[in-house]
Amino acid sequence: MADLNLSPNLPECDDFYAALLETHEGLEEAQMHALNARLILILANHIGDTEVLTQALQAARKSS
């Protein structure tokens, strides 16, 4: 069973974070939500592991 990795795993974390914000630049709130939804679906497809995705959904819900 694959486990969701919740340890630091992004080598250039600041570069990614800056790119993430850059991607949102100039968008209205509704457009931001839509972008984030698309982004989640793209990443979920890439991960392609139901077990991992289920744990990710739970982790996101838990830390709200």
Binding site: S7, P8, H24, A59, K62
Partner: peptide
């Protein structure tokens, strides 16, 4: 802008529980 606030708050929400 709202995106900066959204992601910063998400990071702060996660950081209490998750080391990543």
């Amino acid at each position: 802008n709202p995106a900066h606030t959204l992601f910063r708050n998400a990071v702060l929400d996660l950081v209490e529980t998750y080391e990543f």
